[in-house]
């Protein structure tokens, strides 16, 4: 007589757990590092990464030009944290729109958007690094491959929280209270771009391009990029900038050839 209500009760309890606990959104305090055995969800898992790795000898190079008057960069209020201010003697500005001396635009993420469908690429063994140094992210814009290890390092003697707002992969928000602290993370799905911020130092922002293949680059002080080792084919190449958005161009390259692409962003 007692077993029936008990069974109902257990079901009810399980139901409430399922409803109640499944409903929340993991927004803060997501401290899972990859040491917790989270299954790696590769978009297309290769059966045998050693042999399935497509490659070629084609390449795409180019530069990202900038025209018009760049907006004035906002000055960073480093005095918000003496540990940050200590590490800078000169004024620091937000690295949003950085125009190089040769008229090119820095911090543009360039990647192959279309043309590699159906091919799968194993994640490289080496880790990408996001360093928090002088209360700035280094690098400010960079790319990682799906499943590649991302090593997040705190080089400052102050708290940084790394709040990466991924939407295709699991977002995370973890705190690194001590200098030298390292945490490893991975992204499970391609996403342009994952923005990471530090809530303790509100000016800090980094953009991570998560791509399913190794063909991506970020423009530096010369404003150029190079995507090498591509299989022959026709590709849509995209250039993404945090303020000016995304542009695409299509280019066809054969084995041993080098295609050239030129992007231009205009001041608004």
């Amino acid at each position: 007589m007692a077993s029936a209500p008990r069974a109902q009760f257990v079901t009810l309890a399980a139901l409430v757990v399922a409803i109640g606990c499944g409903g929340g959104k993991p927004q803060e305090a997501s401290a899972k590092s990859n040491t917790a055995a989270r299954p790696l969800q590769l978009a297309q898992a290769p059966e045998d990464p050693a042999t399935a790795q497509p490659s070629g000898s084609a390449a795409i190079t180019g530069r990202v030009a900038f025209s018009g008057a760049p907006p004035a960069a906002e000055r960073v209020k480093m005095d918000a944290d003496p540990q940050c201010a200590l590490q800078h003697t000169d004024a620091v500005h937000k690295p949003e729109v950085v125009v190089n001396a040769n008229g090119t635009l820095k911090h543009v993420f360039v990647y192959v958007q279309q043309g590699l469908e159906g091919k799968s690429f194993a994640a490289p063994a080496s880790a990408a690094t996001l360093n928090q140094h002088g209360c700035m992210y280094e690098p400010h814009v960079f790319g990682v491959q799906v499943g590649q290890e991302l090593s997040i390092v705190n080089s400052d003697a102050t708290l940084h929280n790394v709040n990466c707002k991924a939407t295709k992969s699991k977002p995370f928000n973890l705190a690194q209270p001590t200098k030298g602290m390292k945490t490893s993370k991975q992204f499970a799905a391609p996403e342009i771009m994952v923005k990471c911020v530090c809530n303790v130092h509100p000016w800090m922002a980094a953009y991570i391009g998560v791509v399913a293949h190794p063909y991506f680059a970020v423009t530096g002080d010369e404003g150029t990029f190079s995507l090498a080792g591509l299989p022959a084919g026709t590709y849509t190449v995209a250039a993404w900038h945090e303020k000016y958005g995304e542009q695409t161009q299509t280019v066809t390259v054969g084995d041993g050839e080098t295609g050239s692409v030129a992007f231009e962003f205009k001041a608004q």
């Binding site: 409430v16 757990v17 109640g20 606990c21 499944g22 409903g23 929340g24 959104k25 993991p26 927004q27 803060e28 305090a29 997501s30 401290a31 899972k32 699991k170």
Partner: peptide
Amino acid sequence: EGGAAAAGWTSYAPLSVTLGPGQTCWVV
């Protein structure tokens, strides 16, 4: 994911509302 409740035993809103599933478990 996100761990246990972390808004204090007083669970003040809005912090408790913005926290993850562990906080929902606390309420239930």
